[in-house]
Amino acid sequence: MSAPVVEISGLNKWFGQTHVLRGVDLTIAERERVVVLGPSGSGKSTLIRCINGLEPYEEGTLKVAGVDLAGPRAEAVAAKRKTGMVFQSFNLFPHLTVLENCTLAPIWVRKVPRRQAEAEAMAMLERVKITEHARKYPAQLSGGQQQRAAIARALAMHPEIMLFDEPTSALDPEMVGEVLEVMTELAQGGMTMVVVTHEMGFARQVADRIVFMDAGEIVESAPPTEFFTAPKSARTREFLSKIL
């Protein structure tokens, strides 16, 4: 059993007076693939944004690679860097080419020389199969290509865990497949992943574990077969009856 990449215990978060995360406990082991499901507004995005350090939280502990994100600043910053994030709306930098999108952080944050950064970025673009678009600007790419570029951009920072927040929700249906394929290959390559998605096929095939959230709580956490065939909680059953 390897050391956990993420350890969350008793996590509570409020937006103003809204209690958005209510005592979340979650441990994610190395190479584990976790899919987070739940109705809209249940706190899925907020949870993974906390793991990534984009959202502050009020109570509880959140450790990434053994480092408490609320601890000493320098260590926390280094720990946050071990997480890569892929957004629903891609958020590629429109004023930079795809290649520049992928080399920016390696050059400025990891201080890799430009040439090496470019070589590494090309390798990442190869993995997501868009090397031929390296010199184009994001606006010249299709949605699916943009999202794959965004995945490559995150991978270029050599994260220990990849977080995906509904990576296919903004895509036209015919482009969903190519992005899921890249994610599946990433999972097969041994990447630790947390994926918020509504793609049940992906959840079934790729996930080691499904975490079901509702109203800021983790209601159920189980391997996919068990989760889909024998859900324990009534709330899970209700959710599944709506979507399946």
């Binding site: 990534n52 350090g53 984009l54 910053v77 946050k80 860097r81 997480t83 890569g84 994030m85 957004f87 709306s89 958020n91 590629l92 930098f93 429109p94 004023h95 920016l104 952080a105 400025w108 944050v109 965004a150 951009r153 995150a154 920072m157």
Partner: peptide, 26 residues
Amino acid sequence: PKGQSEAARALGLDPWRTTALIVLPQ
């Protein structure tokens, strides 16, 4: 859009570089 600075922060860029390299040029 806010997503631009969030993406930059998610990549580990500090607030100064996020401003200088991502937000200001746009």
